[in-house]
């Protein structure tokens, strides 16, 4: 049975696109067939993070408009043959993305893939609403920071009311993914703690992704971090998160303080 998972947050810049790419790649690396769909209207990002920016011909709105077939718009990843991308449009016309169009595309994607990850844009407007509308599950990306937590709470409320599942009285399974976690700042009390965030959001934790240069490096070269540096802390955290998404029970690793410069130099990797 195909699963549609929306990766959303409300707040911008918290790591939705990075996470969609990382989770998608990790699923593909485990043998699942995955399509990642960029729901932004006007600002494409997922293609860039996946390194497919030079190969985009058709996009989601072209398919909605009937200019292209789904199979013509889908771009296969060059490194992972199970990973496909449906890029976003560069048009500024938000009305071009219609509910009916999205419904049909999601229905067709369900017949072709095991996992459909929808990368939601920030905010609560049309793109974000349509990204979540047909979701079975949701990953709510949250930074340990007050406005991100509040926005995540808002989005959780919308997942429980604005989705087709909610309208039918069914539950969208929700998970919180904490990103940009800085253990040093957390231990100094400068950052909201994991417990604070979970208490406020009252939603199960999918994973904790540490702040890391590996993520930046990965997007610089256009390769999801789980592929570019699978041994890095964020990659391992994303892989654990994917295992939990697939129903496995994995002990939660809270990222430890990053070791100092000298230890890194001598080759000792942090947690």
């Amino acid at each position: 049975m195909a699963k549609v998972v929306v990766v959303t947050s409300g707040k911008g810049g918290v790591g939705k696109t990075t996470s969609t790419a990382a989770l998608g790649a990790a699923l593909a690396q485990m043998g699942e067939s995955v399509v990642v769909v960029d729901f932004d209207v006007g600002l494409r990002n997922l293609d860039l993070i996946l390194g497919a920016e030079r190969r985009v011909v058709f996009d989601l709105i072209n398919v909605v408009q009937g200019i292209a077939k789904l199979s013509q718009a889908l771009i296969r990843d060059k490194r992972l043959e199970n990973l496909w991308l449906l890029p976003a449009s560069q048009t500024r016309d938000k009305d071009a993305l219609t509910d009916d169009g999205v419904r049909k595309i999601i229905a067709e994607l369900r017949t072709k893939f095991d996992w459909i990850l929808c990368d939601s844009p920030a905010g609560i407007e049309r793109g974000a609403m349509l990204a979540m509308r047909y979701a079975d599950e949701a990953v709510i990306v949250t930074n340990p920071e007050v406005s991100s937590v509040r926005d995540s709470d808002r989005i959780i409320g919308m997942l429980d009311s604005k989705t087709v599942k909610a309208e039918r009285g069914e539950r969208v399974e929700k998970h919180v993914l904490i990103t940009r976690y800085d253990s040093a700042r957390a231990s100094r009390g400068e950052m909201l703690s994991i417990d604070d965030i979970l208490e406020i959001l009252a939603t199960p934790l999918l994973g904790i992704i540490p702040e890391s240069q590996d993520v930046l490096r990965a997007s610089n070269v256009g390769s999801p971090v789980t592929l570019n540096n699978a041994a890095s802390a964020p990659a391992r955290a994303y892989t654990d998160a994917v295992r939990r998404l697939m129903g496995e029970s994995v002990t939660m690793t809270v990222p430890l303080e990053r070791k100092g410069f000298m230890n890194r130099l001598l080759g000792r990797r942090a947690a």
Partner: peptide, 17 residues
């Protein structure tokens, strides 16, 4: 570990387009 030059080149191509 320099990845910034790769990023710069990708952006140059993409933005030129």
């Amino acid at each position: 570990n320099a990845s910034a030059p790769v990023a710069r080149e990708r952006l140059q191509i993409l933005l030129a387009h």
